[in-house]
Design a protein around this nucleic acid. Structure first.
Length: 300
DNA sequence: CCGACGTCCTGCTAGC
DNA sequence: TGCTAGCAGGACGTCG
């Protein structure tokens, strides 16, 4: 599933292929995506030229010389690739932009959790994304991150998946970061020390940077902007390695459900906080029922 | 107001 | 071998 490193790889791949290209044709399929394509968007985009391709969190922003912006989210199975126009269109292709040099920018998404939409200007896109997203992992302020963690009773895993806390981290890199930081995914936010929070912030930055170097991770569907698979999946320390040995200590990696997501961790490197009490819900998910430290009083 | 949970969607896999 | 139930999860709406 595309997270920050995969989206960054797509953006880097697309940049030399689409910047400077004119959008000469647009085709939109009938199947509904997360956002419904508006007829007016086609007219607004046709004839404009791509000026830049950027990423913010897991979102891709394609800047046009008209000031308009095409904004893409890959969801679970989305692919945004440049292919020769004469190459057959694979199934689940939903949007195609015909570019000047006989190539097409194609959006393909089997599960249709992704989206393609248009905004009239940079300010509107900025407001749209700023409402949802916190800082990038590399821009995360130490004090701010400590506070984000400590002001909540949620499990650390849930905090990392919250795009308003840190943008771009998903299930894979949350698990990998927690392992590097030696923190249990269910660890309750309020009990996390400054040192632990700092370790987690640094672990996230490291994991994400390493994954980008390896062009992201391909579990099943993910491909880069020219259709190539990623290479980081062979370096996972915990994700998808349930039952296998921890690369650090050899203990068997465990899989549990936290915040509605599968969570992989090493019980030896990432010990549970024994001061916490938990109960298991009917659906097999564990809930913290007692916290060792009371949350700070909420300010009004 | 925070947090938990249901919903969307289809391809693949485990299990019979 | 062939079928099917269940699982995978990012964003977001809803509900307690």
């Amino acid at each position: 599933m595309p997270e920050l490193p995969e989206v960054e790889t797509v953006v880097r791949d697309l940049r030399p292929l689409v910047v400077g290209q004119r959008v000469e044709a647009i085709w939109v399929g009938r199947k509904k995506l997360r956002r419904t394509w508006q007829r007016a968007w086609t007219a607004s985009i046709l004839g404009t030229t791509v000026e830049a391709v950027r990423r913010r969190g897991k979102w891709i922003v394609i800047a046009l010389n008209s000031g308009g912006r095409i904004v893409v989210h890959l969801g679970m199975t989305g692919q945004l690739t440049v292919k020769p126009s004469n190459e057959p269109r694979p199934t689940h292709t939903h949007v195609v932009f015909g570019l000047a040099s006989d190539v097409q920018l194609r959006f393909r998404d089997a599960r249709r959790f992704g989206s393609v939409e248009w905004f009239p200007d940079e300010e509107t896109v900025h407001a749209y994304l700023a409402r949802k997203l916190g800082p990038e992992p590399t821009d995360l302020d130490a004090a701010e991150f400590r506070q984000s963690i400590r002001r909540t009773g949620r499990a650390l895993k849930a905090v990392l998946l919250d795009q308003a806390v840190v943008a771009g981290v998903g299930n894979i890199y949350a698990d990998e970061s927690l392992h590097r930081a030696g923190l249990h995914p269910e660890r309750c936010g309020v009990t996390v020390t400054d040192t632990e929070a700092d370790r987690l912030r640094e672990a996230m930055a490291t994991v994400v940077a390493e994954a980008i170097e390896h062009r992201g991770s391909t579990i099943r569907d993910y491909v880069g902007g020219a259709g190539q698979r990623g290479g980081y999946q062979t370096r996972f320390r915990v994700y998808g390695r349930g039952g296998e040995g921890c690369r650090a200590c050899g203990a068997a990696i465990e899989v549990i459900r936290v915040a509605g997501r599968s969570s992989h961790f090493c019980p030896a490197c990432q010990p549970a906080d024994t001061r916490e009490e938990r109960a298991t819900t009917a659906r097999g998910q564990s809930r913290i029922i007692h916290r060792p430290t009371a949350p700070e009083p909420r300010r009004t």
